[in-house]
Write a protein that binds this DNA or RNA. Structure first.
Length: 923
RNA sequence: GCGGAUGUGGCGAAAUUGGUAGACGCACUAGACUUAGGAUCUAGCGCUGCGAGGCAUGGGGGUUCGAGUCCCUCCAUCCGCACCA
């Protein structure tokens, strides 16, 4: 067999790798470790399209390269197999989500294996497998049994907190807790009933039950976390989302807000992702201020502000419509109007609010408050531009220096005061922070920055406010009223949420007769028969959200079979953190933030040894569809080629990209594609039908989905792997275009031919290589090494092509060149490399061969042509000895007759020599 | 509105610290060969000009002997956040 028969080769080696467990990984302390992780996929029914494997190919190249470099590489794959689509499908078909999920996973594994990935399948995880979610539930228990101590800056056992309460109560405590936590002395704590003690502890636990305004999606029948809502609709399905007050399981991620923010500075992640997380956390430094209410001596409106320097310009106060004071302080005259407004604001959906941010609405309560610093009497208004969920749900309005307050004051004719010089408040708000404070008593003449500090100091001195750091991030809703997720391991005894014991895990998802809510509106788990704790108590009926199982899975890969712990200490100590994590940027504020949160929590408990789980993150760009169009002449069965369509009245139609090549339509296949096209007629250009092109999302309805299996069949996995890398930078979004795969395929065939003579006989010799051959080889080794280290895979493919072109021209058949080159190629095109490696006589797989080392001596030549430029313009060339020093080159240039002629006797200012590049004479 | 990224031939793209812009591939053109193939090989291929040359990295300006790369400014496209006080 002397032809490059990729089908036979790829089949042979995929079977070999699988049968011999070539990629099985064990802890090996004699080698440095490398943990290379892909974001594990959700196994959807549609299977993989050509865009999905992009990141996997990149991480596989790195993994194979690192193995060749002597690293012990952990490169696993698994499935994020709980989730809504399987459940929606189950609702439609009645088929158990576990069944469809298993089928989909089987298909995914087959497709992945077709591409020759070096995964250790013995470490595969599935989040929906009870042996896996046992540990997801276990981590839930640990979170429930922990609270966050702000003084020590870490999570601690809830037992410490009980001790603290019985000794000192909670008045001295500096903990992450609910806003409405009451003060309790040690005595009072002792007098609380068991239920009351539980309720108080819930206000500290890191998973807790809480009455909160949540995102409720009626169509999906569940609540959603903030990151699962985009533009007021659900991320999955695009259904409208409402605000609703519900008792819910929550995760106290806000406890970690500051550490999540600080940690970003220590990790090698793309700046956009870090920035998105920073915005999501939304730290702002300011102050809270209490405004006493006229006529309510016991009440203060508390506002949060970052601009206390403008306090003298605060001419009114605005409450959110949901603010607790609204009903109490509204005067009789204003009552009707206020009630109408509150009702109207409540019924507006999230969507309405977001699309309608510009209109200014609000209403006066009739109440007045006192500016605690200036002493001015200011009216209290209600408006929905103030958000109940941020800060204190109330603001001091400074219309002169805030655009929203300005618009509001203009509309309702409220006073606008100028307290920072530099703008023109008769025209617009001046929100800038450069300028001197004016009209502000003791703050006059200060810079904004100084005035903020002085303002806070005065407020604290007067006891009317204090410095406060505020975060935009909210605690995450953790319960989902759905079936296909991890059951929350909780039961209710006398109204108290009790946890299952470690030994009772996993709490296995019960079977139900339908995947819909019960008649009484309970989640689907309410349908389970006899599903009671010890036959007595009701279980919690909500399940965990999709992100629960994915927030710790990289630890499970370290020790996937362990049934004593989520991973052994030995495995965690050895593998530590993920060295390279590749995945899409769509997880920036979801998975990647929750994972960091759980990791930090596990770190606090001493269960893991890394504060940050993913040292380096790379976002692979999504591959978009490249749709093709044909143009049908109206009311006919004639199709006109792209360039001529302007001459006709046409309707564009999506055409299957698989019957188009190089943007030319295959007419016969087109006729066969759909029966109504069987007798189609064509108006051609140069005898060809050119199709139109547009970039869109890859989807079935647009007929632009390219299936990797088809390309593997047609070109082979090695070609597809290299072509996906060749397509452009990994991080970049780009449309898929099958044109050009030929180029890579040709390269692999030419590579193969290097090992054979023209008659097709094995022709590798033991001859000594020439310096030209060595140069071609070492240049390539060097380039590939650099490229893999900086994840620039596209240019590697180019370099391989250059190398093969050079070796073909040199007619190289020498083992000393071809053997190391095969090893260098192996990470990119593992099948052909294995085959040639074995034909070269190696009994062992190439996987653990040694990556060759490049040597400088083969790369240099003794002489080099320098272009000589005068004032930056190239005038001549001269050959220099490369080993010459800069000074020697300078002298030689000045002495050169040619250069003297060019200079025409003008004096030389300086000579610039850039070794290997250029000599420039400046006159 | 705020934040981030990107902009180079017909197309995908290279250019790692400022040093001969367009490597490599696709498409295209011409030629060779032939068991006529979706094969292989050779040459050409930014624009302009017969030519030496001139002009070219979204537009304009600047720093420099020298700028795709650094600075200022404007434009376009994409992404994220969005009444966050």
């Amino acid at each position: 067999m002397s032809e490059y028969d990729y089908r036979a080769i790829e089949q042979k080696w995929q079977r070999f790798w699988s049968e011999n467990k070539t990629f099985k990984t064990e802890i090996d302390k004699s080698k440095p470790k490398f943990y290379s992780l892909d974001m594990f996929p959700y196994p959807s029914g549609a299977g993989l399209h050509v865009g999905h494997p992009l990141g996997y190919i990149a991480s596989d190249i790195v993994s194979r390269y690192k193995r060749l470099k002597g690293f012990n590489v952990l490169h696993p794959m698994g499935f994020d197999s709980f989730g809504l689509p399987a459940e929606q499908y189950a609702i439609q078909t009645g088929q158990h989500p576990a069944e469809t999920t298993t089928q989909n996973i089987a298909r995914y594994i087959e497709q992945l294996n077709n591409l020759g990935f070096s995964f250790d399948w013995d470490r595969e995880v599935r989040t929906s497998d009870p042996s896996y979610y046992k540990w997801t539930q276990w981590i839930f228990l640990q979170l429930f049994n922990s609270w966050y101590n702000q003084d020590t800056g870490k999570a601690e056992s809830i037992e410490n907190l009980k001790t603290e309460f019985s000794l000192r109560g909670n008045t001295q405590l500096n903990a992450a807790q609910d806003e409405d936590t009451p003060h309790v002395t040690a005595d009072a704590w002792a007098r609380l009933s068991e239920k009351e003690q539980h309720d108080l502890l819930l206000k500290y636990r890191l998973t807790f039950l809480s009455e909160a305004v949540v995102n409720w999606c009626p169509q999906l029948g569940t609540v959603l976390a903030n990151d699962e809502v985009k533009d007021g609709v659900s991320e999955r399905g695009g259904y409208p989302v409402e605000r609703k007050l519900m008792k819910q399981w929550m995760m106290r991620i806000t406890a970690y807000a500051d550490r999540l923010l600080q940690g970003l500075d220590t990790i090698d992640w793309p700046e956009p992702v870090k920035e998105m997380q920073r915005n999501w956390i939304g730290k702002s430094i300011g102050a809270v201020l209490h405004f006493p209410l006229k006529g309510h001596p016991e009440k203060n409106v508390t506002v949060f502000t970052t601009r206390i320097d403008t306090i003298f310009g605060a001419s009114f106060v605005v409450l959110a419509p949901e603010h607790e004071f609204v009903t109490e302080i509204t005067t009789a005259e204003q009552l009707a109007e206020v009630q109408a407004y509150v009702a109207w604001a409540k019924n507006r959906s999230e969507r309405d609010r977001m699309t309608d941010v510009k209109s200014v609405t609000g209403v006066f309560t009739g109440a007045y408050a006192v500016n605690p610093i200036s002493g001015d009497k200011v009216p209290v208004w209600i408006a929905d531009y103030v958000l109940a969920g941020y800060g204190t749900g109330a603001v001091m309005a400074v219309p002169g220096h805030d655009t929203r307050d300005y618009a509001f004051a203009k509309k309702f004719n409220l006073p606008i005061l100028e307290v920072v010089a530099g703008g023109d408040v008769s025209k617009e708000a001046f929100a800038g922070k450069e300028g001197k404070i004016i009209n502000s008593g003791f703050l006059n003449g200060m810079d904004v920055k100084d005035a903020i500090l002085a303002g806070i100091a005065r407020a604290e001195e007067l006891g009317v406010g204090k410095a406060r750091i505020n975060y935009r991030m909210r605690d995450a809703v953790f319960g989902r009223q759905r079936y296909w997720g991890e059951p929350v391991p909780v039961y209710y005894k006398d109204g108290i949420a009790e946890l299952l014991d470690d030994s009772e895990l996993p709490l296995v998802l019960p079977d139900v007769d339908a995947y819909l809510p019960t008649e009484t509106g309970e989640p689907p788990l309410g349908r389970a028969q006899d599903w009671k704790y010890r036959g007595e108590f009701e279980y919690e009926l909500s399940t965990m959200p999709g992100w629960a199982g994915s927030s710790w899975y990289w630890y499970r890969y370290m020790d996937a079979q362990n049934d004593q712990a989520f991973a052994s200490k030995e495995a965690i100590d050895y593998w530590q953190a993920v060295d390279l994590y590749i995945g899409g940027s769509e997880h920036a504020t979801g998975h990647l933030l929750y994972s960091r949160f759980w990791n930090k929590f596990l770190f606090d408990l001493g269960l893991v040894n890394q504060d940050e789980p993913f040292k380096k993150l790379v976002n692979q760009g999504m591959i978009q569809g490249r749709s093709n169009f044909v143009y049908r002449v109206k009311n006919s069965n004639q199709f006109v080629s792209f360039g001529l369509k302007e001459n006709y009245d046409v309707t564009p139609l999506h055409v299957d990209v698989n019957i188009v090549e190089n943007d030319v339509l295959d007419l016969e296949r087109f006729k066969a594609w759909r029966s109504d096209f069987a007798d189609a007629e064509f108006i051609l250009e140069d005898g060809k039908y050119h199709v139109g092109v547009e970039v869109e999302k890859m989807s079935k309805s647009k007929h632009n989905v390219v299936n990797p299996d088809v390309l593997v069949e047609e070109y082979g996995a090695d070609t597809l792997r290299m072509y996906e890398m060749f397509l452009g930078p990994l991080e970049q979004f780009k449309p898929w275009n099958t044109n050009g795969m030929d180029g890579v395929y040709k390269f692999l065939r030419r590579f193969w031919k290097l090992f054979y003579d023209e008659q097709g006989n094995w022709a590798v010799t033991a001859d000594q290589p020439t310096s030209a051959e060595l140069k071609a080889l070492h240049k390539t080794i060097k380039k590939i090494e650099e490229d893999v280290e900086r994840l620039s895979f596209g240019t590697s493919v180019s370099q391989f092509m250059i190398c093969v072109n050079e070796l073909t021209a040199l007619k190289t058949k020498k083992r000393a060149i071809l053997e190391p080159l095969t090893v260098v190629l192996a990470p990119y095109a593992p099948h052909i490399a294995e085959e040639l490696w074995s034909r070269l006589g190696h009994a062992e797989t190439i996987t653990y061969a040694t990556f060759p080392t490049w040597q400088e001596e083969f790369l240099t030549e003794s002489t080099f042509d320098y272009p000589i430029s005068v004032n930056g313009k190239v005038r001549s060339k001269k050959t220099f000895d490369l080993k010459a020093t800069k000074e020697e080159v300078e002298k030689a240039v000045l002495a050169s007759e040619q250069v003297q002629k060019l200079l025409e006797g003008k004096p030389v200012k300086k000579v610039i020599v850039v070794p290997g590049k250029i000599v420039n004479v400046v006159i």
